[in-house]
């Protein structure tokens, strides 16, 4: 987010520079006052002035923490006192050899792929339906979007109570219609916990997918629909041949957001299960929090956060290169 802010702040500056270059080429001063050289210096200062706040914030809250975590990962450090016990790559060896961490990586990827496989078709179907003129459309859109607006912690606490074994609303409802419920509850059974967390995440984030897809569908020109209808295309054909293909850039962007969100998954897991039962729902983020702030193994937490950063970075770059490239190319 911060990087986007920096780019937007830099853009007007970039435009100014280009104009200055143009002036130099034609050898004419726009206003006729002052020499071009002084003008350029002033404009550079202007750029610096406008970009500096964003850059400072980014350096302070993004660059510095990243580097300090990376530095921490090479030391054994308990969180206070001088950082002197250099251990080389030992923390990385421990993190990668720790079953809890490797399981956490697997859980993250399960969520990444499950999100795309489940939420994409579901979100697309809902968006296509809600794009039709049906009664109560505004209300339906609101109902689907409300969970996304709700703070994650609040949603987590509500679901935690709904999912209480025996006394929770969900189990009461299921048992009243004769549906079997697990002995230890949905969150307390290791084999079901991750799936349960995923269901709650889907409930929470489907709204975002639907919202983005609906916005994307607004960009599909009406003429195409009309032309297709004139040609006798059915509703289904219109969606499949026109709406969905034209929505593809939006879908690719959503997939990217969903992927990054799934890799960084923390809040919902922390509230629903805290990573348990029996480490069945740990994620990379819960691992580094429990190692860092709870156990004071800041070196291990640093190494885990660097691994998380590298995985996220590699996936983002790969996705950009393989999938998003055609979108940016089309723009240019």
């Amino acid at each position: 987010m911060t990087s986007q802010g920096a780019v937007t702040a830099a853009d007007p500056g970039a435009a100014v520079t280009r104009r200055a270059d143009a002036r130099r080429v034609t050898g004419r001063s726009a206003r006729g006052t002052g020499r071009p050289g002084r003008d350029r210096t002033r404009q550079r200062l202007e750029i610096l002035f406008f970009v500096a706040p964003a850059l400072t914030l980014m350096a302070l809250f993004v660059v510095y923490p990243v580097f300090s975590a990376a530095r921490m990962s090479f030391y054994r450090w308990k969180g206070f006192g001088p950082m002197v016990d250099f251990v080389g790559l030992q923390n990385y060896v421990r993190v990668l050899a720790d079953d809890v961490f490797t399981d956490a990586v697997v859980h993250n990827f399960v969520i990444v792929f499950a999100s795309i496989l489940v939420q994409l078709p579901l979100g697309l179907a809902l968006a296509l339906l809600l794009n039709r003129r049906i009664r109560g459309r505004g209300l339906l859109r609101t109902i689907i979007f409300v969970p996304y607006v709700l703070a994650e912690v609040i949603a987590g606490v509500v679901w935690f109570q709904l999912l209480q074994p025996r006394s929770g609303l969900l189990e009461t409802m299921l048992t009243s219609v004769g549906f079997p419920v697990p002995e230890q509850g949905f969150l307390g059974t290791p084999d079901l916990a991750l799936a349960t967390v995923f269901v709650v995440l889907t409930w929470k984030y489907l709204g975002l997918a639907v919202l983005l897809f609906l916005a994307g569908l607004q960009g599909v020109p009406d003429e195409l629909h009309e032309a297709a209808q004139l040609d006798g295309a059915s509703w289904w054909q219109v969606q499949r041949r026109i709406a969905v293909p034209l929505l593809a850039p939006t879908i690719r962007t959503w997939c990217f957001l969903s992927m990054i969100g799934s890799l960084q998954l923390f809040d919902m897991v922390w509230i629903l299960t805290g990573g348990g039962p029996a480490n069945a729902t740990t994620t990379m983020a819960t691992y580094l929090v429990s190692q860092g702030t709870q156990r004071s193994n800041f070196g291990i937490a640093g190494a885990a956060s660097v691994v998380l950063f590298l995985i996220g970075f590699a996936m983002a770059v790969a996705y950009q290169f393989l999938v998003l490239r055609r979108d940016t190319k089309a723009d240019a």
Binding site: P165, R166, E183, Q184, G185, G188, P190, G276, P277
Partner: peptide, 15 residues
């Protein structure tokens, strides 16, 4: 133990 004890918190809230 109470059902779901593996994820039951120690002392926050009625559950």
């Amino acid at each position: 133990f109470n059902p779901g004890f593996l994820t039951t918190p120690a002392q926050e809230g009625a559950t």
